[in-house]
Deep mutational scan, measured.
Amino acid sequence: KKRTSIEVSVKGALESHFLKCPKPSAQEITNLADSLQLEKEVVRVWFCNRRQKEKR
């Protein structure tokens, strides 16, 4: 499966949402994916990866 490159503006939106809520619910992920026009899975994985980055 190909990697999804996320635009800078979208990254900013994801980042600001992450600061408010690092573990969004499935519903929040769906809403966020719809508003940013990304697949739910891409948003879910982004949050997962971002939480791991926070641990490092």
Results as ranks from 00 to 15, higher is better:
residue 32 L to A: 01
residue 21 C to A: 06
residue 11 K to C: 08
residue 20 K to G: 05
residue 23 K to A: 13
residue 44 R to G: 08
residue 51 R to T: 11
residue 40 K to W: 10
residue 9 S to Y: 12
residue 20 K to V: 08
residue 14 L to R: 03
residue 22 P to T: 15
residue 52 Q to H: 09
residue 24 P to I: 02
residue 15 E to K: 03
residue 6 I to Y: 07
residue 43 V to Y: 02
residue 5 S to W: 06
residue 52 Q to P: 02
residue 4 T to P: 06
residue 40 K to A: 14
residue 8 V to D: 10
residue 49 N to D: 07
residue 27 Q to G: 10
residue 27 Q to N: 15
residue 25 S to V: 04
residue 43 V to H: 03
residue 2 K to M: 11
residue 10 V to W: 09
residue 16 S to E: 13
residue 10 V to M: 07
residue 7 E to I: 08
residue 14 L to P: 00
residue 17 H to T: 06
residue 50 R to A: 04
residue 3 R to L: 14
residue 33 A to M: 02
residue 3 R to W: 08
residue 38 L to V: 11
residue 54 E to I: 02
residue 37 Q to F: 05
residue 25 S to F: 02
residue 32 L to E: 02
residue 35 S to D: 08
residue 24 P to G: 00
residue 23 K to M: 12
residue 20 K to E: 05
residue 18 F to H: 00
residue 6 I to E: 10
residue 41 E to S: 06
residue 16 S to Q: 13
residue 5 S to T: 15
residue 26 A to H: 14
residue 49 N to Y: 04
residue 31 N to I: 13
residue 23 K to C: 13
residue 33 A to F: 00
residue 14 L to M: 04
residue 2 K to L: 13
residue 28 E to Q: 08
residue 29 I to K: 00
residue 43 V to F: 00
residue 21 C to N: 06
residue 37 Q to N: 12
residue 41 E to R: 05
residue 35 S to Y: 11
residue 53 K to F: 08
residue 2 K to F: 14
residue 46 W to R: 06
residue 51 R to W: 13
residue 12 G to E: 15
residue 50 R to K: 05
residue 14 L to C: 03
residue 39 E to A: 08
residue 11 K to Y: 14
residue 33 A to Y: 02
residue 38 L to P: 00
residue 49 N to L: 05
residue 24 P to W: 02
residue 55 K to I: 06
residue 51 R to H: 05
residue 9 S to T: 11
residue 3 R to P: 07
residue 19 L to H: 07
residue 1 K to C: 09
residue 14 L to K: 00
residue 2 K to W: 05
residue 6 I to R: 09
residue 35 S to L: 10
residue 12 G to D: 14
residue 26 A to C: 09
residue 32 L to P: 00
residue 42 V to R: 06
residue 48 C to D: 12
residue 8 V to C: 07
residue 18 F to S: 01
residue 37 Q to E: 12
residue 12 G to W: 06
residue 8 V to S: 15
residue 14 L to G: 00
residue 31 N to W: 10
residue 44 R to Y: 03
residue 5 S to N: 15
residue 31 N to F: 08
residue 48 C to L: 11
residue 55 K to S: 12
residue 24 P to R: 01
residue 18 F to T: 01
residue 20 K to N: 09
residue 28 E to K: 03
residue 18 F to Q: 02
residue 53 K to L: 14
residue 26 A to P: 14
residue 16 S to H: 05
residue 25 S to C: 07
residue 4 T to R: 06
residue 48 C to N: 15
residue 47 F to D: 05
residue 2 K to Q: 06
residue 8 V to L: 15
residue 13 A to G: 04
residue 27 Q to H: 09
residue 23 K to T: 11
residue 10 V to E: 15
residue 56 R to H: 06
